[in-house]
Simulated scan of single mutants.
Amino acid sequence: MKKILLSSLFLTAFTLSAQNIDLPTDYVRNTLDGKNDRQKNVVGSPYQNEDFQPGIVTIADKSFNTSIRYNALNDVFETKNQVGEITALIRRPDIKITMDGKQHKIQTYIDDNNMSKQRYFVILAEGETMLLKNEGIEFKEAQQASSSYSQSKPASLVPYTKYYLKRGDQKAVEVNLRKKSILKILDDKRAEKYVKENKLKLKNEEEVVRVLNHYNSL
């Protein structure tokens, strides 16, 4: 039954038990040709992992097992059906993707140009204050050698990681994993006291998650 539901939501239309199932456009954006989204002469991949892997797509209160991968360059999750067809999921506010032990959700954030945007984030800490992780890939232009002593660099796709804090209904803002940066945004003496008593430096995900879990329980 799960396979039938999954097919009706995410596949383009194929024969299952001698029946044609039409593609519900509410859930799938388009059908891809199965090739990697990569230009010639560009080093790197738009995917964190080009292989499809088992995952769970949850929309509202329904969950479906599927094969999935993440195009980090375009911020799109792609699924593949049993006959090899690949479709891209529409980014919806009520969608949640669980893959490789990580939970991904759409969140609104402030970008480097102080503009409000939406994208997928890995949810590291949930509650009134959330810690979000942006595992993205960016395109960098080719660079010509500036002298005979240097070398030209081809265009490349480069992975990056950024962290954001989101408080209540506010938009997420970028934050550095440093004690001063985290505590400035929290702006709460109770959080400062907890960090001091537990001798935390807040330089890694685990310590920041620990503080936020405590902070959210207050």
Rank of each mutant, 00 (worst) to 15 (best):
K2H: 10
K2S: 09
I4Q: 10
L6T: 15
L11T: 14
T15A: 08
T15P: 11
T15E: 13
T15R: 10
L16C: 06
L16F: 09
S17D: 15
S17W: 14
A18N: 14
D22S: 13
D26P: 05
R29G: 06
N30H: 04
N30S: 11
T31G: 12
D33M: 06
D33L: 05
G34N: 05
K35E: 15
R38V: 14
N41V: 09
V42H: 02
V43H: 06
S45K: 02
E50S: 13
E50C: 06
D51P: 03
Q53F: 02
G55F: 08
I59G: 00
D61T: 03
K62F: 13
S63P: 01
F64T: 12
Y70E: 07
N71M: 08
N71T: 00
N71V: 01
A72E: 07
N74M: 10
D75H: 09
V76G: 01
Q82I: 00
V83F: 04
T87D: 04
I90R: 08
R91W: 06
D94T: 03
I95F: 02
K96C: 12
I97M: 08
T98C: 06
T98D: 13
M99R: 01
D100I: 00
G101S: 09
K102Y: 10
Q103N: 12
D112Y: 01
N113W: 05
S116D: 14
K117L: 07
R119M: 12
F121W: 03
F121G: 05
V122M: 11
I123W: 02
A125L: 01
A125I: 02
E126I: 02
M130W: 07
E135A: 13
G136Q: 12
I137F: 04
E141H: 03
A142Y: 02
Q144W: 03
Q144G: 05
S146I: 11
S148H: 06
Y149A: 06
Q151Y: 10
Q151T: 12
Q151D: 14
P154E: 15
S156L: 07
L157P: 02
Y160V: 01
Y160A: 05
Y160W: 07
Y163F: 04
Y163K: 00
Y164L: 02
Y164M: 02
D169P: 00
Q170K: 12
K171H: 11
A172S: 04
N176I: 14
N176Q: 15
L177V: 02
K184D: 10
I185R: 10
L186R: 15
L186I: 04
V195M: 03
K196I: 09
K196Q: 13
K196H: 11
K196V: 11
E197K: 05
L200C: 05
L202C: 03
K203P: 00
V208D: 05
N213I: 13
S217R: 13
